[in-house]
């Protein structure tokens, strides 16, 4: 297991080189001069040139890239053009907010999604199954930003039960609407996937064995079926957690959530290359780390894919 994890961590390095290369090229192609962005409109050409030299962007792109990689190796993500602050500190301000929101969404996803999936599989073709099928279809079809706005109008504006936007004092009330919005599509997917894997698992011979042993319905479903059914669902949730942590651009924008999705979105609009690249790198690392965690959980759930043990069959 140790070597497996080590190998996976080392695999992050080529991924990061690839990602930075692509981002660097993209940001370089955009015909915008960072020096002009930073200085006022009336800046003299000398001043601009001086700034370019100071920032190192007068050099060819591969030199710039090499310098960036060297910096990155030290954990330095550079300085924002727009805010003239280090990217590290900007991201440090915003990442925790995104992670908190993502965790809130995942909790909704896991609890509601898995529960709905089990109910609709066990009570196949019943009223509850049909209800789950219809509501998951709607959840998948509805655009996230529209759902967000509708929730804002309904619970924020009309009913006044919950705050409409922002993080306020960071209390739970502020999380509810954006977390529901963020979780909606994934919850539907989790419910659907749980339903189908559960149905598949329930038709297995070992389920008949479990019943033949005299176990109660709850034991058979809760112990014997669920653990098997959850194996693919865990993958879905893990990958989703990775993408939720940085991919919540729509939700964070609609709810004016001070997270990293919104920060990257604004940075793109402002051509703030260091923030975009730095934010994306962190995102990639989180994503890869989540995948690693998924694989480890996978191995815990399914003994057949544990990595180190090799037993001889007798």
């Amino acid at each position: 297991m140790f070597y497996f994890i080590l190998r996976r961590i080392l695999q992050i390095i080529p991924v990061i080189i690839g990602v930075t290369l692509i981002l660097f090229t993209l940001m370089y192609i955009i015909p915008e001069d960072p020096a002009k962005l930073i200085l006022e409109k009336g800046a003299t050409p000398e001043a601009l040139q001086n700034l370019r030299v100071k920032m190192g962007i007068d050099k060819p792109v591969y030199v710039q890239y090499w310098r960036y990689i060297k910096q990155l190796a030290k954990g330095d993500l550079g300085t924002s053009y727009r805010y003239r602050r280090s990217v590290n500190s900007i991201l440090a301000d915003h990442y925790p907010n995104s992670i908190k929101l993502a965790l809130a969404a995942i909790i909704i996803e896991v609890i509601i999604g898995i529960f709905a999936g089990i109910v609709s599989a066990v009570k196949k073709f019943s009223f509850w199954d049909i209800l789950v099928t219809i509501s998951t279809t709607i959840a998948v079809c509805v655009p996230v930003y529209w759902l967000g706005m509708m929730l804002q109008v309904a619970f924020g504006l009309k009913l006044g039960w919950l705050p409409m936007s922002g993080m306020g004092d960071g209390s739970l009330r502020y999380y509810i609407l954006p977390a529901i919005t963020l979780a909606s599509v994934s919850t539907a997917f989790v419910a659907r996937m749980t339903r189908s894997t559960m149905l598949e698992v329930l038709s297995n011979d070992y389920i008949t064995t479990a019943y033949a042993k005299g176990l109660s319905n709850n034991m058979v479903i809760g112990k014997h079926a669920l653990k098997n059914a959850l194996i693919p669902v865990v993958t879905l949730i893990g990958v989703d957690l990775g993408s939720l942590m940085g991919g919540a651009i729509l939700t964070e924008t609609v709810f004016n959530w001070p997270g990293v999705g919104r920060t990257i979105y604004l940075a793109i609009l402002q051509r703030d290359a260091p923030v975009v690249i730095g934010g994306t790198i962190i995102l990639v690392i989180i994503f890869v780390a989540m995948n690693l965690i998924v694989d480890i959980v996978y191995a815990l759930l399914d003994p057949r894919i544990r990595y180190e043990k090799k037993e001889i069959q007798i």
Partner: peptide, 13 residues
């Protein structure tokens, strides 16, 4: 049961 390969739950000892 007939098939011992599938009659035991693979995720429990």
């Amino acid at each position: 049961f007939q098939d011992p390969m599938t009659s035991l739950n693979p995720v429990y000892t």
